[in-house]
Simulated scan of single mutants.
Amino acid sequence: MHDMQAARGASLSDAHTGPESDVRPVRWAEFATVAVLLLVIDQLTKLWAVATLVPGQPQELIGSVLQLNIIRNPGAAFSTGTGYTWVFTTLSIAATIGVLWFARRVRHRGWAFALGLLIAGVSGNLIDRLLREPGFYVGHVVDFLQLPNWPIFNVADMCINVAAVLIVILSFKGIGLDGTIDGGAADVSEGEAK
């Protein structure tokens, strides 16, 4: 095969330069590391909050800017949809499957980080909905971080919001999951390809 390429004037490295034979590694390890690390942090902080904090008795962490105030949230942000916990659980399961599906093709570090954050956040709250009181599939999410004029939230919520910002930035820049820009030209810059 080498002789045939040499005879046609093509090098061995030229055989791997097309977009369909991209040699950049799949960023599964980065995705999984971010996802697992932040999921563990989310679950440990919720365990701590449940064991330590008393509902209705907020504690100052950084003055009045950030307080610890535990609630059990059956709904979404701002406690909307409190009677539809099972719907949020179903949507979380669908979102988890969707993120895992897209993560199989990630070859860009930024996308690996964004999707890792997203899966950590979605699955962190999903675990609450599946395993916490009042029961399987209708559990209430543990929220305990409070900013002024903002709904009480948790680490999983932070992950989801940061992921959303990163996804918007990557999409605005036209960077695909595979690291190509605008769906065509390969991204060869050192910072973006990694």
Rank of each mutant, 00 (worst) to 15 (best):
H140Y: 15
P74D: 07
R72H: 15
P74M: 03
V122M: 04
Q67A: 02
I70M: 04
G124V: 07
N149Q: 13
Q67Y: 00
V142P: 02
G135T: 08
G124I: 07
I70A: 04
A103E: 02
Y84H: 12
S123P: 10
T85Y: 10
Y84C: 09
W86Y: 14
R109C: 07
F78Q: 03
S123G: 10
L117C: 12
R107S: 06
F136W: 15
I71P: 00
L131M: 15
N73D: 09
G124M: 06
L117A: 11
G110Q: 08
F102M: 14
N125A: 11
I93R: 12
W111F: 05
T89V: 11
A76C: 09
S92A: 14
P134M: 10
G116D: 04
T90A: 15
R129D: 05
F153N: 08
I127Y: 12
D128N: 06
P151H: 04
L68N: 03
I127S: 05
L126D: 10
V87D: 00
V65A: 13
A95S: 12
H140I: 12
S123E: 08
N125Q: 12
F144M: 06
T89Y: 07
D143C: 10
D143T: 10
A114T: 14
L126V: 14
V138H: 12
I93H: 11
G75Y: 12
G83Q: 14
F102W: 14
W86I: 14
W150K: 02
A94F: 13
G83A: 13
L147S: 04
G139R: 01
T90Y: 01
G124F: 04
L91Q: 05
A95T: 13
V122L: 03
T85C: 10
I71H: 02
L130E: 08
I71E: 01
P134H: 10
W111E: 02
A103Y: 04
P151I: 08
D143L: 10
R72I: 00
W150Y: 12
F136T: 13
H140G: 08
V99L: 10
N125I: 13
R104K: 14
T90L: 15
L118N: 07
A114E: 05
H108W: 02
P134D: 11
L126Q: 11
A77M: 05
Y84V: 15
A112C: 06
L145R: 01
L115C: 06
F153V: 13
